[in-house]
Nucleic acid binder design. Sequence first.
DNA 1: AACCTAAACTTCGACTCTAAACTTTATAGG
DNA 2: CCTATAAAGTTTAGAGTCGAAGTTTAGGTT
Lengths: 184, 184
Amino acid sequence: MGETPHVSEPALDEQIAAYQREFADLDPQVEQIVSALGRLNRRMNVAYGRQNATLGISNAEWEVLKALVLSGPPYQLGPGDLAKRLGLTPAAMTHRIDRMVDEGLVTRDRDESNRVRVIIEITAEGRGKWLEAMRLATVFEGDLVQDLSPEERKSLGEVLIRLLRRVEQTQPDGGGRMEDLDRA
Amino acid sequence: MGETPHVSEPALDEQIAAYQREFADLDPQVEQIVSALGRLNRRMNVAYGRQNATLGISNAEWEVLKALVLSGPPYQLGPGDLAKRLGLTPAAMTHRIDRMVDEGLVTRDRDESNRVRVIIEITAEGRGKWLEAMRLATVFEGDLVQDLSPEERKSLGEVLIRLLRRVEQTQPDGGGRMEDLDRA
DNA sequence: AACCTAAACTTCGACTCTAAACTTTATAGG
DNA sequence: CCTATAAAGTTTAGAGTCGAAGTTTAGGTT
């Protein structure tokens, strides 16, 4: 994983002013929303990454643990299913699981009732790491929304879900992993 | 760049229900905000990637063009500056520029007044691609917020900026490129 | 003037991901 | 039965990134 390079992006206001200078047909209101979304997301991912690093796991590993825990008992999934949920190719999943098995976060076993299938199961250690990561994440997230009133939180959540639904209609599934992109 | 793998994630409601089952200390309101933010961002990046692909450029290249255009006349930046703005290491920037020079999107020249420096400048073709990409992006973004009233757009933008400021306070700069992570 | 240090970029080696080819196992037809 | 096809994972080759070492140039010190 390693330390991330230093970022130094212009202030959001300046950025939007530059957009208007170079591209006249721009709705600054919309641009503000889109740019803030992108930046916010990246900053949050960096913050999660720092926290997870203190637990000795990467965001990538956190994602796998999350999928396994949220799948519910018996906390098992196949590599293919995991790949679909995370938006990875099966090949990438194979390698990621290799590492996580080596680190003791998950186990890999053949399904004896159908020997083509493989079963990935979270270990006690993996579960513990996920729980700890969630504790850190919720503290961070609580701090993040600290300045928002209950009404603001409610309406923000609702608006975001409307936007999400709109994207899912317009861009019918099939997307996947994508390099992080700062629309700002 | 290539085709992205197929994604098939559980519905957001189910996901949040699963979180509450596995992690009692969770504020569903906050979780909804955070999860929707992550998913929305990923979907949008995938959509940009599809559009940019029709122009023959990747999101990575779009980012470089964007930085150059927004830097204003004379639309030149050094590799190091570009790397900082994009959150890449100088090494990665070198390689990315290599490709973009080959594709005719930018030029690379030594600064004769200080021969350690290198000047990257956008070409007419690069500028044209960026403009076209922006046209596609603004159509998509306009469609995205179509259901939001003017008041909703305004308050959404303001709330997002407050969140962004909060993150920037809490997580003082230094973040960078991070693999795309779906907090949902 | 010779040296030292810092800055800017590139090169190198390791790692992770994608796409495509391959292997193994299960199932359906002839 | 025996083969054909499909499904699930793995392996392989290539692309892109990071961290660290290396190279070139500028500028200050003695």
